[in-house]
Amino acid sequence: MTEVRDTADEPHRAHRHSGRRLRDVATVLPLALLLLVLPPYIRIFDQESWLGGVPLLLVYIFGLWALIILASGLLSRSLVRHEMTDTQGEGEETDRPKPAKRNAGHGRGERPEREA
């Protein structure tokens, strides 16, 4: 017997899983950096080797630094994009009050200009 699944909820479920996955990656990224700068990995690159006139250890450290900055930037962009789609998907169902609109130029002691 074949079970019929409701496919209307599948995109929402996939979206929820991708958000969880992004948060998991954001948790693991600093831990991975910590592991990559521990002495066993540093000793691999701490040799009398040069790459373009620069010691291999410095290439490793600054390359890792640049890679972490790039990965963090891409990850934060993805997390923000995911959060924005979550809030847009909810629409007007949120209980947050809407901010009050202010008239331009009528705040903090400014007087409205009078017509002559």
Rank of each mutant, 00 (worst) to 15 (best):
M1C: 09
T2S: 13
E3S: 12
V4I: 15
D6H: 06
T7K: 08
T7D: 06
T7G: 00
D9M: 11
R13M: 08
R13V: 14
H15W: 04
R16T: 14
R16C: 02
S18M: 13
R20G: 03
R20V: 13
L22F: 02
R23Y: 03
V25G: 01
A26I: 04
V28C: 00
L33I: 00
L33H: 11
L34P: 00
L35E: 08
L35G: 05
L35Y: 02
L38A: 13
P40R: 03
P40K: 02
I44R: 05
I44F: 14
I44A: 05
D46T: 11
Q47Y: 00
E48Q: 13
E48F: 01
S49Q: 11
S49D: 10
W50A: 02
W50V: 09
W50I: 04
W50D: 09
L51E: 14
L51Y: 11
G52D: 07
G52A: 10
G53S: 11
L57E: 05
L57W: 04
L58H: 13
F62P: 00
L64N: 06
L67K: 01
L67F: 11
L67P: 00
L67W: 06
I68K: 01
L70D: 01
A71W: 02
G73Q: 07
L74M: 12
R77N: 05
S78H: 09
S78L: 14
L79F: 00
R81W: 09
R81P: 00
H82R: 06
T87E: 13
T87M: 15
Q88V: 09
G89R: 13
G89Q: 08
E90T: 07
G91L: 07
G91M: 07
E92G: 07
E92V: 06
D95S: 11
D95Q: 07
R96H: 09
R96F: 11
P97N: 05
P99M: 03
R102F: 10
R102E: 11
R102W: 02
R102D: 06
A104R: 10
A104C: 00
G105D: 09
H106I: 05
H106E: 15
E113F: 04
E113S: 04
R114H: 09
R114M: 08
R114A: 13
E115A: 12
E115W: 12
